[in-house]
Amino acid sequence: MFDLLFDASFLASVPRFVTPILLAALGGAICERAGVFNIGLEGMMLGGAFFAVVGAYFSGSPYVGALAALLAGMALGAIFAEFHLRRGGDAIVVSIAINLLAAGMTTFLLRAIFDVAGAFRDPAIAGFARVHIPVLEDIPVLGPVFSGQSPLFYLSLALVYALHVFFLRHRLGLRIRAAGENPTALKAGGVNPLWVQAIALLMCGALCGLAGAQLSISNVNLFVENMSAGRGWIAVVAVLLTRGRPWPLFFIALLFGAVDSLSFRVQGLGLPQQFTDMMPYLATLIVLTALSWWRLKRQS
């Protein structure tokens, strides 16, 4: 059984599931560090997934699809910024509204644009081709994992490191951290923390949009209602657990993505689908519980 679970094709499937969670969680990390409690990752992801299909369908290019997803995510980030930062709405309330808005908008537009309900699949949706890396792809085990993946996977890996450096050495990264820790001090220094937080929300939206693109035009080439299916929440948990630190975030996302991928895998073993579907959420809950417990113990 273990052979069946952990063979090369299983490993090769892991990046597909890690990528959306990782991208969304990196976006969430920017908000977390900027002091914006954003639990609207789910909605931003869903919006991205839909507009990736729109872009890819009408242009025939997955890159245009990804760009559309990125812009859709940023639009939701801008709406978040407008209502939370400028109008002073509570972050949780605005997040809930963003999630509902994305759910409503995507189903509404699905019917308005494509005139279908539930799901839209069409050969004209241009998905990402796999990136094959010469030499690397011939190495056993490592080859299938690191070669033949979607460009977004490589982007997400690069972003982990980029974000780490960004927080440590970039002016905006420094200001984002300051906005999260002591915004009053940032303001006294002459920088408006609200602008910094707004930029963080836009960046977060962009990354969540790409996460959605990974779901709809990279893993499969279709859009289904509520396609993000709770992955945005898993990303939220990953952000909370790591307090927005890129490297720990990478490993948590890797774990959650692997379980997601595993749950897909074990469906073939005769387990009822409901139980395999439950696995990622259960794993998230268990990790969350275990780490919270550990933190509580360590404190006292």
């Binding site: 951290r177 820790e181 001090a185 220094g189």
Partner: peptide
């Protein structure tokens, strides 16, 4: 009330907003 970022280093605090 000091306007400092507790989690940052002294140097990061000093350059912040005038990097």
């Amino acid at each position: 009330h000091f306007m400092l970022q507790e989690e940052m280093t002294v140097l990061e605090n000093i350059v912040l907003c005038g990097e």
